[in-house]
Write a protein that binds this DNA or RNA. Structure first.
Lengths: 115, 115
DNA sequence: TGTCGTACTACGACTGTCGGAGTAAATATA
DNA sequence: TATATTTACTCCGACAGTCGTAGTACGACA
């Protein structure tokens, strides 16, 4: 079975993560599970990729973090919330996706890629 | 207008280039023009990206090069021809594209990306 | 004479992803 | 009760593909 390579997914992780923040704040572990579930196990994001995306996007102002200190055992969990700039970025990335899709499909040979 | 970023196109340049080699050998400058034309100016590949893709794909056995020495002014031109392994790679990349497309579109919010 | 088009090559920088390791508490399983 | 798994991260360095910049060299056109 074809696998999604890192070079191919690169640039879409942001979309994927932001999509899962559109309605509610969330945190790393949950987002990682949601990606897996929603993609029907076709894409499993690496933890390092996910957390470094959080860091990068927070630095760029697309998401904000806040910490839940009240978990059992004094553990804490870092939540992320999408900002207006993040929504705008998501919109732009979606547009870019549409365009990219259109372009790439000009270079895919016919039905089922018969070559 | 949305622009195609390097992170988004990354991983598809191979498909694009190989597609243009499926029927006939070609060379850098021509391929670059064809990409521009076929994509209706939506994607203009950088020269360095194109030529380094040639080098990489030749090293991987997906394409073979041969030189035309007989151009006017003693100039030469390096052509590339797709190999059977290259065709197989193209096929596999196309499959990967189908899968990736399916996955990504689960994270695109509705028609026109209304967020 | 100078610019544009053709057809590349070289080099180093950048960035997102990844592999591997480590931490630590809560919960499930035997 | 002992062990494994799940939860929830953090840190570090490596890698690979793309990109910016620069340079070469010839021919055609104005």
């Amino acid at each position: 079975m074809a696998e999604i390579s890192s070079d191919v997914i690169r640039g879409y992780n942001d979309i994927i993560i932001l999509y899962l923040l559109l309605n509610d704040p969330s945190y790393g572990y949950e987002i990682s599970k949601q990606i897996r579930t929603l993609s029907e196990d076709k894409y499993i994001i690496k933890e390092t990729t996910l957390y470094s995306a959080f860091t990068r996007m927070e630095k760029n102002g697309f998401i904000e973090s806040f910490v839940d200190q009240d978990l059992a055992g004094g553990k804490k969990r870092t939540y992320y919330r999408i900002t207006p700039a993040g929504r705008e970025y998501y919109r732009a990335k979606c547009e870019e996706w549409m365009l990219t899709k259109e372009v790439i499909e000009k270079f895919i040979a016919g039905e089922g890629c018969v070559v």
